[in-house]
């Protein structure tokens, strides 16, 4: 019986190869978009975490400002600005932060001493804008952004997540609707077969089975396409980021599994609902 259901489903699929592929593509695009959103989010996560830690303004001092001279600089700033909270960032921590984004840095650090790291201090001030005056200090090499970059980044990331998420959901809903309409049309195209099957006592599951097989097979193709598209986007972005010396994003295994599961389950669910609503030619009351 199952072999017959699969065989009938395969027959329908073969006779509608073009439409099936279009449906698979319609499912694959939003799933690929959703998958790539996850990849980007995971890639950006360390930066957001770093910036969250670095909510205070970062001030990079000249490499020769070390030891007692560094302590003297800190004391002087404390005296001049009693409300500032100044903290010296240990060279190991700075190196670790840099290595998160520039992987080759770790290898450099293996060969050279941490002493080459310029001293970094973090200053928490009630009004970060007042720190811009430090740029004129002869011991200061650079002053980091005075606005809360972490918050900005998080907000931008949240917006990107929403836009891509909502777009993916809308496209997925459209693809689900497309699957339902397609099943509806196929059901009417095969109305004579359904009637005969019912008249000869075919179980309801076997009547609906071939249509579910069709959408499940289409879903598998869509899952493969979605996974492939996500990988292509990831490889492309890796190339761009590699030029900048940044770490490459990766596609987690569970994104691929989720894409396949959604690609198969969504059309099956919509097809099952359509069949339940419209394929009930059983008894006229």
């Amino acid at each position: 019986m199952i072999r017959q259901i699969v065989s009938e489903g395969w027959g329908i699929l073969r006779s509608r190869a073009g439409v099936s592929f279009a449906l698979a593509l319609a499912l694959a695009v939003p799933l690929a978009l959703g998958g790539f959103t996850v990849v980007v989010e995971r890639w950006l996560a360390p930066l957001v975490a770093t910036e969250a830690e670095a909510a205070p303004v970062q001030v990079l001092l000249r490499p020769d400002v070390t030891g007692q001279r560094l302590q003297h600089w800190v004391d002087a700033q404390n005296a001049a600005h009693p409300k500032w909270q100044i903290q010296v960032v240990p060279p190991e921590k700075l190196a670790s932060r840099l290595a998160r984004w520039f992987p080759y840095f770790e290898r450099i650090m293996d060969r050279r001493s941490l002493e080459i790291m310029p001293p970094l201090v973090e200053i928490l001030a009630p009004s970060p804008a007042t720190l811009s005056g430090l740029k004129n200090d002869p011991d200061v090499l650079a002053v980091g952004p005075r606005s809360n970059l972490g918050a900005l980044l998080r907000s931008a990331l949240t917006r990107v997540r929403w836009v891509l998420g909502v777009t993916s959901l809308l496209l997925l809903a459209a693809a689900g609707l497309l699957a339902a309409v397609w099943v509806h049309l196929e059901m009417y195209r095969h109305a004579d077969e359904i009637t005969v099957m019912r008249l000869v006592g075919t179980a309801e599951g076997a009547v609906r089975g071939p249509f579910l097989v069709v959408v499940a097979l289409t879903g598998l193709v869509a899952g493969g396409l979605a996974s492939g598209l996500t990988r292509l986007l990831t490889i492309w972005s890796s190339g761009v980021l590699g030029v900048l010396g940044l770490r490459s994003p990766t596609v987690p295994w569970w994104v691929t599994v989720a894409q396949f599961a959604a690609a198969v389950l969504l059309p099956i669910a919509t097809a099952a609902i359509t069949l339940a609503r419209h394929a009930t030619f059983g008894i006229e009351e």
Partner: peptide
């Protein structure tokens, strides 16, 4: 009941 319909129809030819 609807789920018994196939059993009935398997006993007859139309």
């Amino acid at each position: 009941p609807l789920h018994e319909l196939p059993h009935l129809r398997r006993t007859m030819g139309v």
